[in-house]
Amino acid sequence: MSGRVARVLKLLVPPVALLLLLGAAWELYARGGALGRDVLPPLSRVASAGWDDRASLWQNLQPTIVEVLVGFAVSLAFAFTVSVALDASGIARRSVMPVLIGSQTIPLVVLAPLIVIWFGFGFTPKIILVALVTFFPIVVGLVDGYASSERDAITLMRTMGAGWATIFLQVRLPSALPGFFTGLRIALTYAVIAAIFAEYAGAEYGLGVYIQGASASFRTDLVLAAVLVSAVLTLALYAATFLVQRLAIPWYAESRRAGA
């Protein structure tokens, strides 16, 4: 147990120390007033302004969370279905993957207003955008994960007379889960940004709307407060993936630690 505490501390202390250091540097530099306190407010003012405006921040955070979660759910369902099809068919994989990779070159900045034009100002375009942006890393994580299945394991299953579905469920899918969680985490870092971008392009509420409003009235402190909130949201979701991973594939971390 104490080993576990030590491990967690070893994981947490360095980044927290670095953040504190950066925060302190920001605070000191901003207090020096080189850029003007309204242009670059000290961290302490960002925090207190954000706290004072917490009701509005919370109101605008909620739709963003919903967009991210629903967008993610949609993305997961599609990504899994597509990944199964890609795994089942070599021709599908060879034709779809390059197109999918190519699609990633379309910048979010261009895509967001277009999708708002096509789908209106409601929830739909936000969910589509979040789903689009997170889809790719999840699919790649799954497809690479399937491919990481041990050859001998598949051969063994075939000698036992297993068909495609049994091999997929017993070998390929479990083998893919570690890669899937990696893809999931990469996708997550994009998800909140995508939702904010979609709100930028047109929405009633949301962190994006909040940032836009604060920025238009030169409230840099509130802009930065909203940025901090979105960072905390992403980090919380990120941490949640580790929790889910622990529950879903407990064998993975354990067997890696055992060096097997």
Partner: peptide
């Protein structure tokens, strides 16, 4: 190489033979 599945317990690895084959 033993090709035991890390996501299955020892017993489940052995029972795979009976289940699948």
């Amino acid at each position: 190489r033993d090709v035991l599945f890390p996501w299955r317990s020892v017993e489940q690895n052995v029972s795979l033979g009976g289940e699948v084959a």
